[in-house]
Amino acid sequence: MYETFDQIADDIAGRLEEAANSRHSPMHTPVVATRDADARVMVLRAYDRATRTLRFHTDARSLKCDVIGEGAPVGVLLYDQAAKIQLRCRGTGRIERDGPIADAAWEASTTFARRCYLGDGPGTEVEQPSSGLPEWVEGRQPTEEEVAPAREHFAVLLVELAVVDWFFLSNDGHRRAVIDMVTRVGRWITP
């Protein structure tokens, strides 16, 4: 089934597109790791095959935005248990707070999703369990006007993929390949 590097590169791109477009995809919520050895689960919002770029939404006040800034190494781990395929992606991340990509991502989001950026910044210490959201917005969908102030806290994390380590688990024998996403050149390695 997976005999050539082109097949594997196409499989990777197809899985990333599906993960971004379907919240039911097992790869929709990958683990994203930054150079400070911090890792977190994030929702994959888009994958651009032409530029090999993953897009995530994030709070501009989060620590990862400072760590990544305008360019830093980022790892993204995705796993499809049913297909038995793991993707270990490595690339360069950058945070965009303003500009056409961030603006379009904000506009495409629902007001319910935008309300997440109304609250306290991620990691704020609180006295009791809390979503961090203002009480007036808890449990309801706010209006466009009500979420407008949250735009200053919204950002996108873009990860331009350089290399993907593709791992297929099989009773017939596992297969593993490393694909350079720029050149589509690959090499087989032992699992």
Rank of each mutant, 00 (worst) to 15 (best):
V156F: 02
R88K: 11
E144T: 15
P30T: 11
D10I: 13
H28R: 07
S130E: 10
T4G: 08
A148W: 05
E125G: 12
M42P: 01
Y79F: 15
H174L: 05
A33S: 15
E145Y: 06
T92N: 00
G119R: 03
E152P: 04
D80C: 03
A72H: 05
V126K: 07
I12W: 00
L78N: 04
V43F: 05
V126S: 00
T58R: 05
V137T: 14
G93E: 05
R140W: 13
D48Y: 10
D66T: 05
I8W: 07
S25Q: 04
D165V: 12
G69Y: 08
V31P: 00
G123K: 10
N21W: 03
D36V: 06
S22W: 06
R176I: 03
A150Y: 03
G71I: 06
V185Y: 10
L77F: 11
D59N: 10
A33C: 13
V182N: 09
A102Q: 11
G121A: 15
W166L: 04
P134C: 02
V32T: 09
A104I: 12
N21H: 10
L158E: 09
V156D: 00
D103G: 14
R35N: 15
Q141N: 08
A150V: 11
T190D: 09
I95T: 07
W188H: 12
R187F: 05
R15C: 00
E127A: 15
G173R: 09
M42C: 10
S170L: 12
L161A: 02
V178R: 13
S131I: 10
V67M: 00
D80F: 06
E70Q: 13
